[in-house]
Design a protein around this nucleic acid. Sequence first.
RNA 1: UCCCCGGUAGCUCAAUGGCAGAGCGGGUGGCUGUUAACCACUAGGUUGAUGGUUCGAGUCCGUCCCGGGGAGCCA
Length: 494
Amino acid sequence: MRLSFKILIIWVKPPGTIELKTSFGDLTMEKGIRIVDLLGKEEEYTGKKALVQGWVRTKRDSKAGICFIEINDGSCMKSLQVIAELDREDYSELLKKITTGSAILVEGAVSASPGKGQSIELHAERIHLYGWADPALYPLQKKRHSFEYLRQIAHLRPRTNTIGAAARVRNRLSYAIHQFFQNLGFHYIHTPIITASDCEGAGEIFRVTTLDPVHPVDTTEEDPYRNDFFAKPAFLTVSGQLQAEIYALALGRVYTFGPTFRAENSNTSRHLAEFWMVEPEMAFYDLEDDLDLAQAFIKKLVGVVLDDCGEELEFFARFIEPELMARLQNAAQSAFEVITYSEAVDILIKSSEKFAFPVQWGVDLQSEHERYLTERVFKKPLGIINFPRSLKPFYMRVNDDEKTVAAMDILVPGIGEIIGGSQREERLDLLLEQMRIKEISADDYRWYIELRQFGSVPHSGFGLGLERMMQFVTGIQNIREVIPFPRTPGHVEF
RNA sequence: UCCCCGGUAGCUCAAUGGCAGAGCGGGUGGCUGUUAACCACUAGGUUGAUGGUUCGAGUCCGUCCCGGGGAGCCA
């Protein structure tokens, strides 16, 4: 029997064209240099040849015999200026066809640019047009578009500066999340997407079923879900926390990072039906340890973006949020303020601020209260701990005062709550009491209870919404712009 | 889901109840080492849908759909 194999060849061809060719059968595809790499080594490439591939942002003809093409390949904010000669026999006809949005390859010599706005440019010796874009129909113009419009063309919007930059920052953040936890010895656990845990305090949930929607379950039957796929009600997860606890009580320190679903009919700039959440869970951590970790985590994420996404931040600061850099520097450098819920209530009551919702001990803090505290009083990230027991879910650890639980919320200016976490109730009797008060079925959570029966330990964890973090570090106001394909009530396009 | 604001050309927006408009984008021509280029000409509309008031509705009223801001819920 003959073995078939695919060959990957990489070679550097003097005087500097880096090519990478893959052979899949008889198809050969050229691979050029990414624009970010080219611009990062301007001096090295000046005077040498390079091959780039990307999408045309704009083209300007000059009757002096040349044409300027701005090509962007998504590797960075910057586009590369290509100089093409209008009267060249080999590509002059092709040049006429190149329009904004077209996908092209350009090979040529890199030289210093005499014009303003760019240090180097590429003088085309060979041009290839992969895919033309009809200028009468291409929906993206050179000028600014509204985010509402771009959302309708989510298949093309990553080609814009803002959405492209957001995608690169999101990638860097995601990587940094793994780096942060891996460096601290955390294990990445894949908690289930489909779950039968349907309460946990979270609101509406998505049902997962293979039952015929036209003929829904007969509720008069003894077991209406008998014929459903899982033979019982199943849902999309609203949190991986409870399962993460299982692994924390075996591997010590773990985290989950994956999609999370809420079927709430929330129409706001801060809510999605499908979003990504990071949930660390640590054995032998109390609330203070939890808080310390959360603070270090936020500082690390902000620091990484400041260090590695400079161009993107500069762009966001210029066009989206002027205060962005100050906000991020502040979050990366200053220590977070931490107060108790009771202290927060005192501050709010003593303030002269007029709130739409009056404050008193025992009621939940409203958005206006949170914003006042983090934006007006402390002007930096703020942790609030020890909330009234009645306001928080059953799994949070009851404090000695028996009135509060070891919960923590971290609020940031401009966004509000970005992290919610707690020390978990590890004492069997108190957990059962909490479940009884909150009317949680002990049968459904047998396994969760058994974690307290067999080798229970103090443990803590928190959840951070990736998109909320994205909003914080980019300054982009609507959460629908920081996720590639937003799912909100009435919207599952793309 | 509730409150407020909006929906007019491909995009961003004008238009006292009285002829449907501009800028940008597109097309054509001109000019220029250009940079969100510039100049001229040109094409482009069932004013979100539906019902009503009126001699006459983009404009006023009802209902619905969609978008934005805020609220609730939360991450």
